[in-house]
Write a protein that binds this DNA or RNA. Sequence first.
DNA 1: GTTGCTTGCTAAGGCGCTTTAGCAAGAATT
DNA 2: AATTCTTGCTAAAGCGCCTTAGCAAGCAAC
Lengths: 345, 345
Amino acid sequence: MANRRATQADVAALAGVSPTAVSLVLAGRTGTRLSDTVQSRVHAAAAELGYRPNLTARALSTQRSHAIGLVSDQASVSPEASALIRGALRGARAHRMTVLTAETEGDPEIQREATEALVDRGVDGLIFVASRSRVITLPEAAMRTRLVLLNARIAEDRLAVLPDEHNGARSLVDLLAQAGHRDAVAVIGAGAPELEPDVTFTVKRRLEGLWEGFAAHGITPFATVPEAEWELSTGYDGMRALLARETRPKVVICLNDRLAFGASRAIHDAGLRIPEDVSIASFDDDVIAEYVQPQLTTVSLPYVRMGELAVELLMNDDSAPGEHLVDMPVHVRRSVRGLAPTEQG
Amino acid sequence: MANRRATQADVAALAGVSPTAVSLVLAGRTGTRLSDTVQSRVHAAAAELGYRPNLTARALSTQRSHAIGLVSDQASVSPEASALIRGALRGARAHRMTVLTAETEGDPEIQREATEALVDRGVDGLIFVASRSRVITLPEAAMRTRLVLLNARIAEDRLAVLPDEHNGARSLVDLLAQAGHRDAVAVIGAGAPELEPDVTFTVKRRLEGLWEGFAAHGITPFATVPEAEWELSTGYDGMRALLARETRPKVVICLNDRLAFGASRAIHDAGLRIPEDVSIASFDDDVIAEYVQPQLTTVSLPYVRMGELAVELLMNDDSAPGEHLVDMPVHVRRSVRGLAPTEQG
DNA sequence: GTTGCTTGCTAAGGCGCTTTAGCAAGAATT
DNA sequence: AATTCTTGCTAAAGCGCCTTAGCAAGCAAC
């Protein structure tokens, strides 16, 4: 029952033509002068045998695998980054590419092995994805290959897909200003960009966008509470510290959703209401943004789109080199007073 | 600079031996009577040229790709299921296998195409992963191939990896009983197994394990609140309903963490404390189990291990067919009175 | 001194596909 | 009637590897 897959030779034999003819016809080549008779005989035979091409053989022959390698650090651990992968898979499907996946779990040695294995398999290109936007280093084998960095940068000037943090942050401030929030604005997570030298380049851009917006709208950020770890507890503590001040903040921008989640709880515990007493907005559009009441207004990280774009850049031979930034749309939900939600809250 | 990769022929030329010799030596074949001289010349030449085998050619020649195809429904969407994939990737690495990934987004047509593409690439086996344990259907192309179902079953009796829901549930009840909780026990999410005909087979087993435990310990589940959708709000409402009863439940078993999350909030809102007033335990060990205060005692779904096992079964020619169940360990955290947490809470 | 075994290595075919060059027969040209 | 063009198709080589069969030389045996 488990009889051999039919090959082109089998089709040729059944159709009574040469293997060459089969190849030509099934490839849909134009300009070959094969008669209609032959064409239809080939198609019929192929259908009868359930012929499917052997992609390995084709790859060997054409030197193109129609496959791309995806090397992630620990992307499938974090929900955010699995969105990157989902986007890449979607993009790959659109380009009829197969994706070979490897996960390094952060180990450079594993990364090297995985990269080499993928290159040895003849992938047409590589995508390196980082779960947090980082400057990463790549194994040497990667550098000889067409590659795209997804949510990451390397020292060299290679194709990279990154979120447009600057404009995302800026447009959040614009929205807040437009809703009338121009004073008593606080930031939890970091201070002005010039005060934060040690921050990753993406966070830096996020801060620059915010402070550019503040400047443009004459906003003096009321109080900032820099915290190292962006976790629930720091958000909670940060918010409590803010609430203990003389003037209570009316808008709090948290640098990520976890901070906002903690801050929300602190606001709630203080007997205050969101957004009536305090408005809150944040970054990332993490799933937990929907677990808070009311749901968070947050600047979303467009991971899926980024993943798709990575594949597009990889496939397009004349992609402009360097960074490609993807819009970070503001998801307006109910946590900001004066803004009409764009989705059901 | 981007000069051709060295082939065995190049190595042979440099070493002054035949390509056959190179193949034999580099394959580490024993029993070939090649002299030490030849062996070392080959190794030296290979090293000098940085020779790496072309895996596509090898696959074509040996009819083994050393690759497995992973078809997920929407696994990389859900954090739980991305753990399945992580496990599979880990297992694949251990077996020096490459993983070709495809995502169907639930569309049977995409599933068929993806499966065929993977088979056309000559994968040595297929893993189908479902984000919720389900009975799934597979495209015909899959059935001719060696395959493992990960977190899923099909009608036919094929290799399948599933969580051991029955024993997981049973051991939770055992633990609760051991901690002295034998009355005022409530369940949120579903009723006794015989009352729930429409539930998926995994949930069925979970219920059977629970009720078996109840019977063994003489526990009469105090009240059950069946709800269709296992969401926060239903957990919240369910708990409120329970709290409105005459006798207040002392232990609540939620059938998943989201329910527990909602229930926790209801308990908190009612001015009660966990675990002093009400103990709570649930299933899944979702990330949100750590977002609740106190952190949830929950029966964990061993996704990573399941993923690893799937690869092991696939690679092992004489795996016993049928279902392979993986233990569901109870993660004891602080939400149950009388149980010492096994991890920091 | 033919036969036979061992040792050390290579020739060559095959995996299934693509692609280039080219063959044979008829049609068009001179 | 010989030459050149088309037309319609196929032979054959090549992608890079693995593997089987077998060759040549040296040695042992009869």
